[in-house]
Design a binder for these strands. Sequence first.
DNA 1: TTCTAAAGTTGGAATTGTTCTAAATTTTGT
DNA 2: ACAAAATTTAGAACAATTCCAACTTTAGAA
Lengths: 136, 136
Amino acid sequence: MTLTAQHIGKMMAERGLRSSVQRVAVMRYLVDHRTHPSVDEIYNGLRDGMPSLALATVYNALDALAGAGLVRRLDIGGDVARFDYSEQAHAHFVCRKCGMVYDIRGEMQMPAIPAGFEAAEIDVTVYGLCKKCKNK
Amino acid sequence: MTLTAQHIGKMMAERGLRSSVQRVAVMRYLVDHRTHPSVDEIYNGLRDGMPSLALATVYNALDALAGAGLVRRLDIGGDVARFDYSEQAHAHFVCRKCGMVYDIRGEMQMPAIPAGFEAAEIDVTVYGLCKKCKNK
DNA sequence: TTCTAAAGTTGGAATTGTTCTAAATTTTGT
DNA sequence: ACAAAATTTAGAACAATTCCAACTTTAGAA
């Protein structure tokens, strides 16, 4: 399910985000790779087609995209940030052995927020052993 | 609600964890400070009474305690790890403005885990604006 | 289309939280 | 009290991320 550069550019414009070749490339990488890639994976994945791409640009693009709500930063521990594009909200399952991150779809309820607080986003992460690692 | 060194030592022994002056001090710090402190806060908080304490020791102690399940590492983004001692499970609310971490108690439903997977732990974090920051 | 100001990109250096290492110390079981 | 194993120390090393200044691109106006 690849989106065109135009479509992605439009998504950015709607959120008040400037477009650039690099930002579109990063966004498209996340749309096409639903594997919760790290910054380095994105960077290396894009370098083939964009040899002059700077690592700092990937960081900048991800900051901008995450700030605009087009992309999600996953804080699942480990030493690198992972990113996620997804239309619908979902939880994550992180395998403690292989580090793989799986999507868990299905509804989940927001816990009760204290009065006067304003919730913007929720993160649900389950840690454990994935099927593959358990069978060993 | 301070626990004695003996009590803490016993908790560690029950989990097969060796006791040491430093580990007990770190554990006690977390029991006494339910503010989700960072490694640096713990380190500086303990240095008064233990001038020779090494930063690496705080990291080691926290690793050991977290590994034994006596303490929790919070992956709530930001650039530092935060730690949490708590008898009962609870979610967290992280303020995007001031960075403060609040506990959210009350039941919440576990998302459905795929068949064959084994869940060990769940993290629920809500991001937004806390009461203080909202009123400004 | 051309121009201009504002914003984004580059590449490398700087920063900083965390981990590593080897020697000294402490702990546990005998 | 003894010996073996584990922990602590202090500082160096490491690696993910951020910063910086010069250069390039973008969006919008003329």
